[in-house]
Design a protein around this nucleic acid. Structure first.
Lengths: 181, 181
DNA sequence: GGGCACATGTAAGCTGTTACATGATTAA
DNA sequence: TTAATCATGTAACAGCTTACATGTGCCC
């Protein structure tokens, strides 16, 4: 019952780095965690309100149409620690690219080639993006203590993107062989 | 609006290989597409009923509490082809492992190590599973024309799993360094 | 004065899972 | 005969996105 709310974990986690407004939480998640996480306003604001009600967050600043900054209370930090320790509830895989390729016989070889080329371009862009993140972090003075952990996630993205590139090249060769019959 | 139903695509795709009951569709998706796709009964049965109503599927066999086998009509096959050509609507990434590692400073190095070791074991099991799938396909006489495409998805899984293994080893070394300070 | 980034929220709706309910067929 | 597998469905609900509604503050 009530399996762990991952949105709650993400919001508490963001606020564990520094106090922020809801808008800033969204921006932080989009820009920093963007390659492996997403939260929408529709999740963030209700979550903030609820966590504040439960005493897990403090709220500072203009109640009325201003900038309300949230920060973790002691209870909030304890709750985050507890959530992080919960086992993952892995949401079932759903890979639209592989589903299409699986039915490649219906789709046709040419369309498969296009899909794989698009995946390759996407992986290249991701690699460039990871390089940019590394460069930004290298010049960043704040949050040094977090950096080793943040870099683990960047590295995971890079390994994944490189694997996609290698698979795409191999796959394009295979598909060309199929096209030639 | 009404972005492409991927469940519909999966169901039509399964039936494009051969006619099946709803139960068999579920089993086929679970066992064959399981490493990159999932559908639950709650999706499959309503989808089958709807597609039959729309004339995309034929239904044979016991209406009443028996085995109702569905097969693609000509319109159904055309619909599948059309769906496969729709652009992917990539659902936002959500990687619970990376989210936890990102907040590794709150979680602690030891717990991070455990998470990564679990991920490694999981990747090893996936590799073994892919080997089993390859072995099964090698002895399988049916569906030969599909095999080249099916193997593309297996290869994608293998590349991903090997990337996870390499990342996990690198990460465990990094974490040991952090623990030693 | 206009546009843009910052900021806060809500409502509707979709997608999909989980749990339940029920029954037939087959193999040990 | 009993257990497992095959088989069909539904109801409740969780989770999340999208679109909308509204407003402020700042810079050009």
């Amino acid at each position: 019952m009530a399996r762990v709310s991952q949105s709650e974990m993400a919001v508490l986690g963001a606020l564990s780095v520094r106090p922020m407004t809801g808008y800033a939480v969204r921006e932080a998640i989009r820009t920093v965690l963007g390659h492996f996480w997403n939260e929408s306003y529709g999740q963030i604001y209700p979550t903030l309100t609820r966590l504040h009600t439960e005493g897990l967050l403090d709220r500072h600043g203009g109640e009325r149409s201003g900038s309300m900054t949230y920060s973790l209370t002691t209870a909030g930090r304890a709750r985050l620690s507890e959530l992080l320790r919960q086992p993952e509830s892995p949401r079932p895989e759903r890979n639209g690219l592989l589903l299409r390729l699986f039915f490649g016989r219906e789709l046709g070889v040419d369309a498969c080639v296009e899909l794989v080329q698009a995946a390759k371009v996407d992986a290249e862009q991701r690699l460039a993006n990871y390089a940019a993140i590394r460069a930004t972090m290298a010049t960043e003075e704040e949050d040094r203590a977090h950096h080793p952990f943040w870099l683990l996630t960047v590295s995971a993205g890079e390994h994944g993107a490189r694997a996609t590139l290698a698979w795409a090249d191999e796959t394009l060769r295979t598909l060309r062989g199929l096209a030639a019959n």
